[in-house]
């Protein structure tokens, strides 16, 4: 859909309930997808970066990008050894919609994707930032020896003809490379380009069951659904949250306000 409109939180809530009903997933308590409330029996299913380091019992830090099919396929390509002997990863992510994707959200997401796609933990991390703190370059060494660069930027201006994130995730092996960016391009493609009296608009509809949602909203609903369908992933995501928060905080603390 148009990348600069998204649905309200009641819609997200109803769509998740629709999936629960359709696939016979039982609910033991109510849930919240939009923000933190004081209700004690409500499960808070939010992207992990929205929580602080310390989690209450009813907080579930989601890693929604792990439900995005392009990242699932990239991970599959690595895991099935379609590409072999991975040595290098080149990640970049520039935020156009700073409200939707603030710096800490991108840091949290990209550090997690680095580990998710490679299947290895971050062993060392070095970073530099520009004067404003809007651009951060990170070099990561993973426990399996893979070297990874992460470029993060908050300095792109808003545009309705761009998705909220301009990103690239490239994995390079001795046999083959894989990427979410098509060869010889710098920006992600969209499924629809409309040239109308409003100028050029783009649309990226990826999920018929959740039609009308932005891809990041689809990811949020799918990962919340998975947390109920496969509760075993929750304990893993809590551990990963603590780990990611430590890494993210380490970078954020050094940046100018």
């Amino acid at each position: 859909m148009n990348t600069h409109t998204h649905r309200n939180n009641n819609d997200l809530h109803e769509s998740l309930k629709m999936l629960f009903d359709k696939y016979d997933v039982s609910l033991s308590n109510d849930f919240e997808l939009s923000g933190i409330t004081s209700a004690p029996d409500v499960m808070h299913l939010l992207p992990g970066w929205k929580f602080s380091k310390d989690l209450s019992d009813n907080y579930v830090p989601l890693l929604p990008w792990r439900s995005n099919r392009k990242f699932i396929e990239l991970k599959n390509i690595v895991e099935t050894q379609t590409i072999e002997d991975v040595a290098l990863m080149r990640l970049s992510c520039y935020s156009i919609d700073h409200d939707l994707w603030p710096l800490k959200a991108i840091l949290y997401r990209e550090l997690d994707l680095c580990e998710f796609l490679s299947g290895s933990k971050i062993a060392t991390l070095n970073h530099v930032a520009n004067k404003s703190g809007e651009c951060v370059n990170i070099v990561v060494k993973l426990e399996n020896g893979v070297l990874c660069s992460i470029e993060i930027g908050m300095d792109l201006t808003d545009s309705i003809s761009m998705p909220p994130l301009i990103e690239r995730h490239e994995i390079i092996g001795a046999r083959g490379t894989c990427s979410d960016l098509v060869v010889d391009t710098q920006i992600p493609q969209s499924s629809i380009y409309a040239f109308t009296q409003n100028g050029m608009e783009i649309y990226n509809d990826i999920d018929m069951e959740l039609f009308g949602y932005e891809p990041f909203e689809v990811d949020h609903i799918r990962s919340a659904f998975q947390a109920y369908q496969h509760p075993e992933v929750v304990s893993e995501s809590i551990l990963q949250h603590v780990h990611l928060y430590f890494l993210m905080e380490g970078v954020m603390e050094t940046l100018p306000n």
Binding site: K70, E73, L74, I77, Q81, T82, I83, E84, G173, R175, G176, T177, C178, S179, D180, L181, V182, V183, P188, Q189, S190, S191, I192, Y193, A194, F195, T196, Q197
Partner: peptide
């Protein structure tokens, strides 16, 4: 106006096995 659509894209890409 005009609209151009790719019903099966974008995707991910590789040159491996």
């Amino acid at each position: 106006g005009a609209i151009m659509a790719d019903c099966f894209g974008p995707n991910v890409y590789h040159n491996g096995a």
